[in-house]
């Protein structure tokens, strides 16, 4: 698809423009951002190398060792069919992190293009697109996601698609707003007088300039997407057994919370730590890349 070729260059351009030294200097100044980033790296490392760190096969059942308490044999105990919770939490992180990145990439990509398109074309197309986005935004998002996930059939990938679809309007708004601003700038109007095609303007002028706010939003979205995906799994619309997933583990564990509190406590804690780390990092990066918003 031509879109793909279009997008490679602007990203490169943006990345080449970033002053990495300055960014690192700013991150170092903020202990919370640094801490968040470090935890993100640790989580990524742990889940990518889950097979190395896991002590058991996450799907191996042992009905004779059900609901065992945390100990040396099972660090975080076992679940209701005797699977090792520590290993399942490691593997479960893969689902959460993968969903986070998937949603942000898909929603960010589609949203950015639709928004830039609407802003560039203007007129009726713009009005129709934006009203549609307004309507989608006023539908209760969780219910929309739940209904969509149920319609697509319960699976983690469908839950991710549902979340991505509902997230698109946010990126459309950001990208359209930036496009409108940039359109009025002198270098774009100059290009227009030279009869540059819309595609050319989109590729060389608009996209490179809207990527920065979009990326800030994307980083912030990672944390909330991980939360949302686990919430869907919690109500049974996400990951399917026997795949380990944090939200689903909390859901099953709630039945045992009185006698085996660790069952839902540990996976829930994993969600909390991961989401917090991504949010701290996103928050910090926003402050640095988007100084206008810094005060917020």
């Amino acid at each position: 698809m031509s879109d793909a070729t279009v997008s490679v260059n602007p990203i490169k351009r943006v990345l080449s423009r970033v002053d990495w030294g300055y960014l690192w200097y700013q991150i170092k100044k903020s202990p919370l951002t640094l801490g968040g980033g470090a935890v993100v790296l640790i989580v990524l490392f742990l889940v990518i190398f889950a097979p190395v760190f896991a002590t058991h096969d996450p799907n191996a059942i042992d009905l004779r060792a059900r609901l065992a308490a945390p100990g040396w044999e099972h660090f975080f105990g076992t679940d209701e069919v005797g699977r090792d919770l520590y290993s399942r939490i490691l593997y479960g992180g893969r689902q959460s992190v993968a969903v986070g990145f998937f949603v942000v990439l898909v929603a960010g990509f589609i949203g950015t293009f639709v928004g830039a398109f609407a802003g560039l074309i203007g007129g009726r197309v713009d009005v129709v697109i934006m009203r549609l986005m307004d309507v989608v935004l006023s539908v209760p998002s969780l219910v929309l996601i739940m209904a969509l996930a149920a319609a697509l059939g319960p699976s983690l990938i469908n839950a991710a698609i549902a979340i991505a679809l509902v997230r698109i309007p946010i990126y459309v708004r950001i990208s359209r707003g930036q496009t409108l601003l940039i359109r009025e700038m002198s270098f774009v109007t100059a290009a227009e007088t030279f009869k540059a095609s819309k595609l050319h303007i989109l590729r060389w002028h608009i996209l490179p300039n809207i990527l920065s706010p979009v990326m800030v939003q994307a980083t912030l979205d990672l944390g909330s997407t991980i939360l949302l995906a686990s919430a869907l799994s919690f109500i049974g619309l996400g990951a399917q057994q026997p795949t380990a997933e944090w939200g689903a583990m909390v859901a099953t564990g709630r039945n045992y919370i009185l006698d085996q509190w660790w069952y839902s406590a540990f996976p829930g804690f994993a969600i909390l730590i991961t989401a917090t780390a991504f949010n701290l990092l996103g928050d910090g990066i926003r402050d640095i890349l988007d100084p206008k918003q810094k005060a917020r």
Binding site: L227, V250, G268, I271, L272, T276, F278, N279
Partner: peptide
């Protein structure tokens, strides 16, 4: 940041 990062369904279970 912790507030927006806490799974409400899990926090609910813990406070119960």
């Amino acid at each position: 940041v912790t507030g927006i990062s806490t799974p409400a369904f899990w926090l609910g279970l813990l406070v119960i």
